[in-house]
């Protein structure tokens, strides 16, 4: 939950000023800092970014009667449904956030986990 809140808050803030791809380093760093298991890190990243995208896209969709999203949803194509486009938007953001948090979590685990094979015998590891 802490990881989710951190990603949700930090990424939300950063995206108002920086390009969208800032979500990748933010979620990755947060995942590295707080991620405990891969699965939970992914979920926290997915939800942290996805919820932010869902809320903002949904707000715009509701505000503007979906005039533009209705058109974009024919272009994509999603049968002209602006709300479907909101969901797709959230999933795309969520995927990036989830993967980045997962990567961050696993990177930390790799750094922190003691090596299972002695460094002097790398050949053994590679041949098995």
């Amino acid at each position: 939950m802490r990881l989710f809140l951190l990603i949700f808050g930090l990424a939300g803030l950063a995206q108002f000023f920086l390009p969208w791809w800032i979500i990748t380093p933010v979620a990755l760093a947060a995942g590295a800092a707080l991620g405990r298991t891969g699965g939970r890190a992914f979920l926290a990243g997915f939800a942290g970014i996805g919820l932010g995208w869902l809320l903002v896209a949904g707000w715009e969709q509701a505000q503007n009667a979906g005039r533009l999203s209705h058109r974009v949803a024919q272009l994509i194509p999603l049968g002209g449904s602006g709300w479907a486009l909101v969901v797709v938007t959230a999933i795309i953001g969520g995927l990036v956030g989830g993967l980045a948090a997962l990567a961050g979590c696993w990177l930390r685990q790799a750094v922190l986990t003691p090596r299972q094979a002695p460094a002097a015998k790398p050949d053994q590891v590679l041949t098995h």
Partner: peptide
């Protein structure tokens, strides 16, 4: 698609 900077 980013709702912060994209077409939204």
């Amino acid at each position: 698609l980013s709702p912060f900077g994209g077409f939204w």
